[in-house]
Design a protein around this nucleic acid. Structure first.
Lengths: 118, 118
DNA sequence: GTGATACTTAGTCACATGACTAACCAAAGC
DNA sequence: GCTTTGGTTAGTCATGTGACTAAGTATCAC
């Protein structure tokens, strides 16, 4: 279990909740205080704060308190990790499908000439 | 709570586990029977099957049983949903940062000419 | 300095998750 | 046909998650 893997765990898990995704969506459009993030959500403020804590633990959100207001902002680096993982998978299966395509085409050519043409 | 959102929940949640990601990684390289997916994992076969069920419920994996062997394959469509969501967020914050950049440049120009030049 | 505002902490509770063993079913192999 | 193999189901259990209320702290506005 690498550190890499544990971070991915946290990021995927953090995004696996509509309330938390709503917060990320809001923050993608600019920084906001806790109360503004919590207001649209159908839950109490403490519950919303818990979600926020999950996002911060995953590195998706940074926040800073000034006076009595905590302002939150998105931290895009964490998302790029997810993108990289997905891209790696896509590359693997596309390469495989290419090989498969080549193979099928080979079969096809062999069919035309009624045997391999080496 | 849209259907879209519920699907995203399931996909993110499914990927938030190293055992399940390992299965997806394996299947990206080609189809495999249940036992091959389970073998490298540090858990019993029934536990592995449960993980597999989560992946299937999320639409990330399809499987078909022939004889006594169930062969699993990746279903790439589900992953593209995730990609789309992440891209949408990136577009939002990049647009915002562009606007911010423009604004800062405006301030800069105003500084040079010592006032707005309209 | 008193009250409202903006969080924060603590404590509780229901339910979901993820692991296990044991037992079971059905197709192969001999 | 009996055994092995590959998968499945059932039932149990510990832990994690996500919600709440109540109460506390630290600013800010007057």
């Amino acid at each position: 279990m690498t550190n890499q893997s544990i971070e991915l765990d946290r990021v995927f898990r953090a995004l696996a909740d509509p309330a938390r995704r709503a917060m990320v969506e809001r923050l993608s459009r600019g920084p906001a205080p806790v109360s503004e993030l919590a207001r649209p959500l159908p839950m109490s403020l403490p519950s919303a704060m818990q979600h926020l804590a999950v996002l911060e633990a995953a590195g998706l959100v940074r926040s800073e308190k000034v006076g009595r207001v905590r302002t939150c902002a998105i931290a895009p680096e964490a998302l790029s990790q997810v993108e990289q993982w997905i891209n790696a998978r896509r590359i693997e299966w596309e390469r495989r499908l290419d090989r498969l395509g080549d193979y099928l085409q080979t079969l096809d050519s062999e069919g035309e000439s009624n045997g391999p043409r080496d």
